[in-house]
């Protein structure tokens, strides 16, 4: 819960609410980009960000994203975060 996970912003989903689709280790998840959007959110597409409980908190470069993901995998935190995302989706359906 305390460590962010790197994801790549792939599309803007709701410009007014500053929401975008991010791809995190092959999993797509809608995230809030308010903290990293200092221009039109469309400018963020293609960029990497550290995503923390559904909020993109810092723009990072691809090498940093790679290294962070490796460190998180080593700690088992990447898997935990992906499971939490799946659990979140299940909770919305009333399955969790």
């Amino acid at each position: 819960m305390c460590l962010g996970i790197p994801g790549q912003i792939v599309a803007v989903t709701d410009e007014a609410r500053l929401m975008a689709m991010a791809e995190v280790s092959g999993v797509r998840r809608e995230v809030n980009v308010a903290c990293i959007a200092d221009g039109p959110p469309g400018d963020l597409v293609g960029k990497w960000a550290l995503i923390h409980v559904g909020f993109a908190m810092a723009v990072i470069d691809e090498a940093e994203a790679d290294a962070t993901l490796r460190a998180l995998r080593g700690l088992g935190e990447a898997q935990e975060t992906l499971q939490a995302m799946e659990a979140g989706a299940a909770a919305l359906e009333g399955r969790g």
């Binding site: 998840r29 409980v53 559904g54 939490a84 659990a87 979140g88 989706a89 909770a91 919305l92 969790g96």
Partner: peptide, 16 residues
Amino acid sequence: IRMVYSPLDALELARR
């Protein structure tokens, strides 16, 4: 009790 990944999930639960 629902386990969520993000407070955004909780917002969505409230909408639904």
